Amino acid sequence: MFEVLVYVYENYWQGDACPELHQLSRKLTAVGFEAEEIQAALVWLNGLNVAAQNTQVGLPIASAVAPELALTNTPPGFVTQSAGSLRVYSVAEQDHLGAQALGFVSFLETSGVLPPHMREIVIDRAMAAPGDPLMLDDLKIIVLMVYWSFGEEPDALVLDELCDDTEFRVAH
């Protein structure tokens, strides 16, 4: 499934250029991906599209109730996470994601490149992905796809972190 997602990201890096799922299925078949991988990826992508659209639409915030929220870059309908808040992961999330993936999500969050609403989509899509625990490279693909679904390109340093093979890095 992740090979299909990488192909989609590389070939349709502008999310609005991506064809509808049924047409994408035909294109992926023509490229040579197996039917099972295509089906799994399309189901996963459909879930990503639903999550991204629901986040972007959101529920309206009454600016009279919380005028300070109108000035933030938080999507409508979402209350910004306070500095003292803490995301508690369920046992199922901890088991499926594993310590390495959770550590990476925490790293992205504390670096300020993964806002809370995107983090929740990353966690949701990671829970929908195969693997127990999820491989870190697979989580990086998920993060890229979440950025893609919002029509955003990650910062160059973040993109380097997501795409670079860290196995052969030398610590200075």
Rank of each mutant, 00 (worst) to 15 (best):
D165F: 06
Q39C: 06
P115C: 05
P115G: 11
D137P: 01
G77R: 15
L102C: 04
D138C: 03
A129Q: 12
V158E: 03
V8W: 00
E20R: 15
D165E: 04
A35E: 10
L108A: 12
D137I: 04
E93N: 13
A70T: 09
M1H: 03
W148N: 09
W44S: 03
A99C: 02
I141R: 00
V122I: 02
D160A: 08
G84N: 15
L21C: 07
V31G: 03
V43N: 05
H22F: 14
K140G: 02
V6M: 08
D137Q: 00
D165I: 08
L86Q: 11
P130Y: 03
H96I: 05
T80Y: 13
L28P: 03
E152G: 01
V105M: 10
V4Y: 15
V158Y: 02
E152D: 04
E167W: 07
M1L: 09
G84P: 02
S85F: 06
A52V: 05
A70K: 11
L114K: 08
V79Y: 12
I38T: 04
V122W: 05
F33V: 09
V88Y: 00
L42F: 01
E152W: 09
E109A: 11
L97G: 05
G151V: 06
E161Q: 12
P133C: 08
H96L: 10
L24G: 02
S25T: 06
S82K: 13
W148Y: 09
D138R: 08
A99M: 09
D132E: 13
L86G: 05
M127W: 15
V50Y: 11
P76Q: 14
E120F: 10
L24D: 03
G84L: 14
R119L: 10
L45F: 05
E36G: 05
H172D: 12
A52N: 06
Y9W: 06
A40S: 09
E167C: 01
L5P: 02
E34R: 09
T29E: 12
A156C: 01
Q56S: 13
V105R: 01
A126C: 13
N49H: 12
D95V: 14
M118I: 07
A171H: 06
P130H: 07
L157Q: 06
